[in-house]
């Protein structure tokens, strides 16, 4: 079976999503939650694999682990997404759930940031998104 063609979709302008904020975008009809953490962007399927919570409404938190009862070790600040409904945690880099990483995951998508000038060289899908060469843009790659 031949691989589906990978397409890149412009979904946001850099600066548009505030730090630790999110934006719900649609690519090929699929709702995707796009997050901005410390200059990096992450995209995962917006539908929580548990029971359909809209992940773009979730809260970004650190990864809390512990080597010893009573000790709370926080790493990877704001890289875990807590579902807005039942609070399951998902790694925004991989979409994997914390409690059951192998079988419960939100699909994650590759994200790149490109200058408007670069985009002018194409190929990309801007859909309804106007692109200017002075700005930078967030792109999601999808098969």
């Amino acid at each position: 079976m031949s691989a589906a063609v990978m397409t890149r979709h412009v979904v946001a302008k850099v600066g548009e999503i505030p730090e630790k904020g999110s934006k719900l975008v649609k690519v090929k009809g699929r709702p995707i939650a796009l997050f901005h953490v410390d200059g990096e962007y992450f995209a995962i399927s917006n539908t929580c694999p548990h029971a359909g919570g809209s992940l773009c409404h979730g809260k970004l938190i650190g990864l809390i682990r512990s080597s010893e009862p009573g000790v709370y070790e926080r790493t990877r600040p704001f890289e875990m997404l807590q579902c807005p409904w039942h609070g399951w945690e998902f790694d925004i880099r991989t979409g994997q759930s914390y409690c059951d990483p192998d079988s419960i995951k939100a699909r994650s998508y590759a994200v790149t940031v490109k200058d408007g000038a670069e985009l002018a060289e194409g190929p990309f899908v801007a859909e309804t998104f106007p692109v200017s060469i002075e700005d930078q843009y967030v792109l999601i790659e999808m098969k």
């Binding site: 919570g53 409404h57 809260k59 807005p84 409904w85 609070g87």
Partner: peptide, 10 residues
């Protein structure tokens, strides 16, 4: 509680 006002965040 788990969340402010016990609520769904959305």
């Amino acid at each position: 509680k788990a969340t402010p006002q016990l609520a769904r965040r959305d």
